[in-house]
Each structure stands twice: as structure tokens, then as C-alpha cells.
Design a protein around this nucleic acid. Structure first.
Ligand SMILES: Nc1ncnc2c1ncn2[C@@H]1O[C@H](COP(=O)(O)OP(=O)(O)OP(=O)(O)O)[C@@H](O)[C@H]1O
Length: 738
DNA sequence: ATGGTCGTTCTTTTT
DNA sequence: GAACGACCAT
């Protein structure tokens, strides 16, 4: 490797960053604030290892928090080392765990045809557990039990260990649900998301052979977002990196926002304790944001009691003040943002793609979608109703899963009567009971026996059900036969046709969208055509389970990035950056979320504050924080209060617009109807314009909105000494002043 | 027994 | 605004 290349790699780094990149021999811990180049250190460290030290990229493991981050990192590294970036092992802990289980799972009795159960499958399974345990699902909510079980797994507690620590009645109940839940998973040849971490750790703990193989495969290990790892992830990391100890983890305790998912901030201290050789390297310069943004964010986060100060100074200048903008309701909030974006694009040379809208809950995106559609602004939503969460996708995937793994009762129950084919609740109950009484065989086996009807102790179904069951079993076995010979795509099409699912979708009122989605899924399947059919299916189904952002993956690989505004939750925005950021819904009981307010747990409130901090520090140049004075929450309008977090921001760094109560006490005004095809007339006034009026004198335009009929503009003007008035531009005779 | 409809309830964040 | 449970018509 040329020395020029080495200089290249180190050239774009400051002294501390360079030190972190070059310290490749022992464990390195980088604790530093936002925008200080932690991720950059990882990418450059990889490049340095490969280009300067000649390390084989296959021997490098880099773990990121999301699939999105992994894709992003890979493309960054590609920019530094070229095609060989493709040989790196790069992905989430869960994806890495799944890989280990596919390869070595049988060593700990994970069957090689296992499927991965996601959130939804897990909840369904736990529902059945609760039912079987004879518990009331109202008192013992499946989601709560699942959370407890997930917590146990993330702390590496097996059923036995959890049970022996159970101190009260509730925990003993959790223990027995955990126990049964595990049995059901095993019977279904399934693992849940947490198993993807826990089982590989159990495997590596107990099996020296596999452990050494993995340790020898990866000479260098790097982990991003270390502050949000849990115990199982910690142990997985230390087991894999245990031999060479060329390990580099980076994180920021102020950006820890996943404690609710059992992330353990102690992992930072634990690292220094367990790896005594650790070099801890701080990075103190923020290259991302203006000093105003850095200081405002710091003013917020320093309110947290449970926190150590981290040095961080901005490399950039002051920039603009943070804009705090109250709006009437969520529709006006969205309208304000749309207009502000248009203004930034028109006047400040920003592009749509430079802008991001960040919110606490996915439900908030809707108002912005509507508003952007109306204004003709292109946008893309990250997360939200995820691709694989859509009903048609889950249904098709369930068919494929059952065909691959007939033990998968949860998927079978999902599709057995979709489309309806006369196999209802009662029939499945009978089959279920029969299956339990017969050695817990899978439901599908029970159906086969019932359809066959030969065996004397076959399940006794009502006469009208036997026909449908027989037809279903017949159809499935024909498909199973087809699975042997055909390639992935042919099989995919067969499934849609034979099960009648395609016809079923065509009846749907959203047929077009749904069929489109299925078509996209088919495109994903197409990527696996090159693999041998058996393997192709496993790989395809794994990807479906693991890439929670499949749609993003499709879009980014496909047509390339559009110049579009990004809509994203605060959680998902972690690690990203945008020239212009809007944090919307900065209201009490939304940010901080009502759950954290009501719990009264200071730790939860501090996590909400960190979440807001993460959001603020995504902004490079411009930061807006908006809130609504009232908001439609599940059908009802309620008054809202500005978030306490806004009060922490020093006045010299922000520009607060005072709440102007246009129509606040009156009935809610309808928003203009969407009229997509009508070009927008240029607004005669912009917010901020100075205007004169014959009777009210001079004033400043607050807002200028097209009327619902689109034939005039309603101008809201704050007049000196006269208060705020709303006038029709066509009638009021407003005069623009300079 | 099934399948559709209506009313009730609960509502974060994600791998 | 969705998702589940109860109820009713077939
Ligand atoms: N030495 C440097 N010189 C110039 N720009 C830099 C330097 N280091 C980092 N940057 C830039 O600063 C921005 C933030 O870097 P990076 O995303 O690596 O920070 P980070 O510490 O991972 O942030 P966060 O914790 O918020 O995710 C990026 O745009 C990066 O290109």
C-alpha cells in the first residue's frame, strides 16, 4: 500500500481521531459527544487497517445499531477502500447472531430450518402462552410479559436462572410464561429476536471449538453506538474479540436512548473493567453543527442529574438562532414546516433532501405527509408502517414460512383462513387440542391426520369442516412438491396463484397498492435466485425478518436517492445528520412522552431529554423546534403545553415566536382540500414581510395561506398596537413596505 | 360453525 | 385510528 494512501486516510482526521485510528493493537474506548467524528473514526480505522496495514477485509467485523447505519457505513468505507468493502462483515448484532446460528446453531440444538419470529409473531405466541396458562390477558398483558422475558434474555438469564431469582408472585408468573414461551418457540422451530443474541452467546460460552473459529475469523472488531448495547451484546462482543483484543467501541452516554429496550449504560464502565489495557480516547470537537446548536443542546442535556460532563466545542461558527415555533394545531404545524421548507429552498439554496422532520411517535408523520402532498413536496418516510408490517406482506411471508417450516404454528394460524376457506376458529381449536393431546405435534400435522381420516384417533371435526381442511392440506402438499423443483420466483408465483391469495388481493379496495407491495417482495426474492433453492429460501426469509427497513433498502438500492424531505422518528435519527432539522411536537406528554411523565421515574425523564438532545444535535445549520397549542390525539382535540425541554434553552440562542392564538378558541377550521393537480399560485406575502394597511397601520405578516377555494390568500398580520388580524389579501388592500 | 359488523379499548420508541 | 372482542345473521 502506498504511503500516499495512508496519508490520505489520516489526513482528514484531527489528532485525537488519528490516535484512535492508529491504536489497532489493544482495546480502544471512545467516549465523545455528537458530531465529534466517532463514526468517522470507525470508517477510517477500517480503511487504515485494510489499505495501510494490509489487513484482509474478511477479517474485520463492524457492528452498527441499524441496518441503515450498516449500509451507510459500508458505502463510506467503499469511498475509502473501493470494492473490497464488500468483503467486510458489517451489520447489526442481530444479523450477526443470525449468521452464527445458521452456521453453528445445531451445536446447541437450534434446528437448521429455524425461522425468526419478529415482534408481531412473538406477541401472538405470548398470547397463546397466556391463554394456556389460564391467565387473564388484561391483568397479564402479553406485551408486558414479553418485555419481561426479553429483559431476562438480554441479561442472559435462562428460564432456570430467571425462575430462581423470581422474588414475587408476578415474577413467578413471568417465569412460568417464559418457560412455556420457550417450549412453544422450540416446537415451532423458531427463535425470537433476543435469541439471536442470547443463543450465540450460550454457544460461544460452551463450545470452545466454535468460539476459536470465530475468534480466528475476526482479527479486528468495531462497534458503533456502544452506549445502547445490552449485556448479551456486550458478551457477544467480548467473546468474539476475546483473543486478539483489537477492539474499538465508540459511544456517547448522553445519546443513550434505548434503556427501554434493555440497553445497559454500565457497558461503558464494564468495558474498562474487563479490558484493563483499554485506551480511552476522548474527541472534543464537534464538526457537525453551528456553535448555537451545540450550545443549545448542551444547555438541555446538562439538566440531567445522572450524567458526567463531556468536553465538546464547536468547530463551526455561530450560525442562526434555534427557531421555536408555536402553531395552532398539528395541521398548522405541518403547514408551517412545509412553507418554511419551501422558503429555505427558494431563498437559502437548501435542497429538499437537506431537510428532516423528526418526531417522537410514528403517528405524527401523517399530518406532514398530507401537508407535503398538498404542497407537492417530495418526501420519504423512514420506518413508520414498515413494509413487512403490512398485512399482505406478512400473509405472503407466512405462507412461505409454513411451506419451509411446517412446525411454524403461528404462521399457519395466520394464513389457514386467509383468504377465507371455511376453516374457522372452532375447527382450529379442535385441532389445537388434538395436537396438544398427541405429544404436542405441530398443527399442520394435526390437519394432515384429520384430512387423511384413516387413523382411528384422528381429530373429530364437524362434518362441514373436513372438506375445507382436506382441500387445504391438498393444496399445501402440492406446493411443497413444487418447492422441490422450482426456483424462488416460480415458486413465489405458484404460491400466490394456488392459495388464491392473489385473487383475494384483487378484491381488496386497495388492490393496487397491495399488489404493488407483493410485487416489491417478489423483487427482493429475485435477488436470491442465484443461490441453490433451499438456501435461497432461508436467506430470503431471514432478510425479511431482520431488515425492519426493507423498503428503505429497496429504494436506496433501486432508483437511487431522490431529493426528498426525510420524515423520521427521533430514535431512528440517531447517527444521522441534516443541514436543516425540524423537531416537531415539542410538547408536554409527547416529548417527553406521557408514559415517561406518568411513570414518575427520573431515569425515564432523563432518557426523554437525551432523546431531544439527540434530535437537536442532528442539525448542521438550521434547527427548528415546533409545537402545537392543541392536537388531535385519537379523535379528540386537547389543549397542549410547550415542552419543558424548550424552557431549558437559553434566550440568547433561540428565537421564540409567541403563541398567536388565531382561532384557538373558536371552532377548528377545516384545512384546504388537497388539489394535487392545480399549480400553487405564488403567495403575495411571506411571513416576515412588512405591510401597511389603511386602518391598522404598519405590521408584520405572520402567515399567508391560500383560502380553501384557492381564489385568494388569507393573510395573518401582527399590527403595531392593534394586535393580530386576519385579512383577505384581495380585499384588505395591503401594501408591501420595505 | 363461520364470517362479517359494530362497539370498546388502548395508544412510544425498535432489532 | 387500529385492533380486538362480543354479537348477530347466515
Ligand atoms: N476531522 C474532521 N474534519 C472535518 N470534518 C469532520 C472531522 N471529523 C468528523 N467530521 C464531520 O463531522 C460530522 C460528524 O461526524 P460523525 O458522524 O462521525 O460523528 P459522530 O461522533 O459519530 O456523531 P454522532 O454521535 O452524533 O452520531 C460528519 O459530517 C463528519 O464528516
Amino acid at each position: 500500500m502506498t504511503t500516499a494512501a495512508a496519508r490520505d486516510i489520516l489526513h482528514n482526521l484531527n489528532e485525537d481521531q488519528r490516535r484512535a485510528v492508529e491504536a489497532v493493537d489493544g482495546p480502544v474506548l471512545i467516549i465523545a459527544g455528537p458530531g465529534s467524528g466517532k463514526t468517522r473514526v470507525i470508517t477510517h480505522r477500517i480503511a487504515y487497517l485494510v489499505r495501510t496495514l494490509g489487513v484482509n477485509p474478511r477479517r474485520i467485523l463492524a457492528v452498527t445499531f441499524t441496518n441503515r447505519a450498516a449500509r451507510e457505513m459500508r458505502s463510506r468505507v467503499e469511498g475509502l477502500i473501493g470494492d473490497r468493502a464488500g468483503q467486510l462483515t458489517m451489520g447489526t448484532f442481530h444479523a450477526f447472531g443470525a449468521r452464527i446460528l445458521r452456521e453453528y446453531g445445531e451445536e446447541i440444538h437450534v434446528p437448521n430450518d429455524f425461522v425468526i419470529y419478529d415482534q408481531d409473531d412473538q406477541t401472538n405466541l405470548m398470547r397463546r402462552v397466556v391463554e394456556a396458562e389460564g391467565l387473564d390477558p388484561r391483568t397479564y398483558r402479553p406485551a408486558a410479559l414479553l418485555d419481561a422475558v426479553s429483559g431476562a434474555k438480554n441479561r442472559m438469564q435462562t428460564v432456570g436462572e430467571y425462575a430462581s431469582h423470581a422474588g414475587n408472585r408476578y415474577e413467578r408468573i413471568v417465569a412460568s410464561c417464559y418457560d412455556r414461551y420457550e417450549q412453544y418457540l422450540q416446537a415451532a422451530h423458531a427463535v425470537d429476536f433476543d435469541d439471536l443474541l442470547m443463543k450465540p452467546v450460550l454457544l460461544l460460552r460452551s463450545n470452545v471449538d466454535v468460539r476459536e473459529r470465530l475468534q480466528n475469523r475476526y482479527d479486528h472488531v468495531m462497534v458503533d453506538e456502544w452506549q445502547d448495547t445490552n449485556r448479551a451484546q456486550y458478551e457477544l462482543t467480548s467473546l468474539v474479540a476475546g483473543k486478539h483484543q483489537s477492539l474499538c467501541v465508540v459511544g456517547d452516554p448522553d445519546q443513550s436512548i434505548y434503556a427501554w429496550r434493555h440497553a445497559d449504560i454500565e457497558n461503558i464502565l464494564r468495558f474498562e473493567r474487563d479490558f484493563p489495557e483499554t485506551q480511552t480516547i476522548p474527541l472534543g470537537r464537534n464538526y457537525r453543527s453551528t456553535s448555537t446548536i451545540v450550545d443549545a443542546a448542551h444547555a438541555l442535556v446538562k439538566e440531567n442529574k445522572d450524567r458526567k460532563e463531556i468536553e465538546l466545542t464547536a468547530a463551526k461558527g455561530t450560525g442562526r438562532p434555534v427557531i421555536i415555533e408555536p402553531t395552532d394545531d398539528e395541521e398548522y404545524e405541518a403547514l408551517y414546516v412545509a412553507e418554511e421548507i419551501e422558503r429555505l429552498v427558494a431563498d437559502d439554496k437548501m435542497r429538499y433532501g437537506d431537510c428532516a422532520i423528526m418526531y417522537r411517535t410514528n403517528a405524527q408523520s401523517r399530518a406532514f405527509e398530507d401537508s407535503f402532498n398538498r404542497a407537492g413536496i417530495r418526501y420519504r418516510i423512514i420506518g413508520g408502517l414498515r413494509f413487512w408490517e403490512r398485512r399482505e406482506i406478512r400473509d405472503v411471508v407466512a405462507y412461505l414460512r409454513v411451506l419451509r417450516n411446517p412446525f411454524d404454528d403461528i404462521s399457519l394460524l395466520r394464513i389457514v383462513n386467509t383468504p377465507t376457506r371455511g376453516i374457522g376458529r372452532r375447527t382450529m381449536d379442535i385441532l389445537q387440542q388434538w395436537a396438544e393431546a398427541n405429544n404436542d405435534v405441530p398443527l399442520y400435522a394435526a390437519m394432515q391426520v384429520a384430512a387423511d381420516g384413516q387413523e382411528s384417533r384422528a381429530p373429530s371435526l364437524p362434518a362441514q369442516s373436513i372438506g375445507p381442511v382436506r382441500a387445504f392440506v391438498q393444496m399445501m402438499s402440492e406446493l411443497l412438491e413444487a418447492l422441490q423443483g422450482e426456483d424462488v420466483l416460480e415458486f413465489f408465483d405458484q404460491v400466490l396463484a394456488k392459495t388464491g391469495y392473489r385473487d383475494f388481493l384483487e378484491e381488496d379496495e386497495n388492490a393496487e397498492d397491495r399488489l404493488d407491495n407483493v410485487e416489491e417482495l417478489r423483487n427482493v426474492a429475485a435477488q436470491y435466485q442465484a443461490l441453490p433453492p433451499g438456501e435461497a429460501f432461508a436467506a430470503f426469509l431471514d432478510q425479511v425478518a431482520l431488515s425492519t427497513d426493507l423498503d428503505a433498502a429497496i429504494r436506496e438500492e433501486g432508483s437511487g436517492r431522490q431529493d426528498a424531505v426525510t420524515l423520521i422518528t427521533l430514535h431512528q435519527a440517531k447517527g444521522l445528520e441534516f443541514p436543516v432539522a425540524f423537531i416537531v411536537g415539542c410538547e408536554e406528554e409527547l416529548l417527553p412522552h406521557i408514559r415517561s411523565v406518568e411513570s414518575g421515574d427520573p431515569a425515564e425523564m432523563e432518557e426523554e431529554r437525551r432523546l431531544c438532545y439527540v434530535g437537536m444535535t442532528r442539525a448542521m445549520e438550521r434547527l427548528y423546534m415546533t409545537y402545537a397549542l392543541r392536537r388531535n390525539m385519537r379523535g379528540q382535540y386537547g389543549p397542549r403545553k410547550a415542552s419543558r425541554f424548550l424552557q431549558s434553552l437559553p434566550d440568547n440562542l433561540v428565537k421564540r415566536r409567541m403563541p398567536s392564538l388565531s382561532g384557538f378558541y373558536g371552532p377548528r377550521e377545516p384545512m384546504p382540500e388537497p388539489q394535487l393537480d392545480v399549480p400553487k399560485a405564488p403567495a403575495p406575502f411571506r411571513p416576515g414581510d412588512h405591510v401597511g394597511h389603511a386602518r391598522f397601520g404598519q405590521g408584520v405578516v405572520v402567515a399567508c395561506l391560500e383560502t380553501p377555494t384557492r381564489d385568494d390568500f388569507e393573510v395573518t398580520v401582527a399590527f403595531k398596537g392593534q394586535g393580530v388580524k386576519r385579512l383577505l389579501a384581495g380585499l384588505a388592500g395591503l401594501e408591501k413596505l420595505n
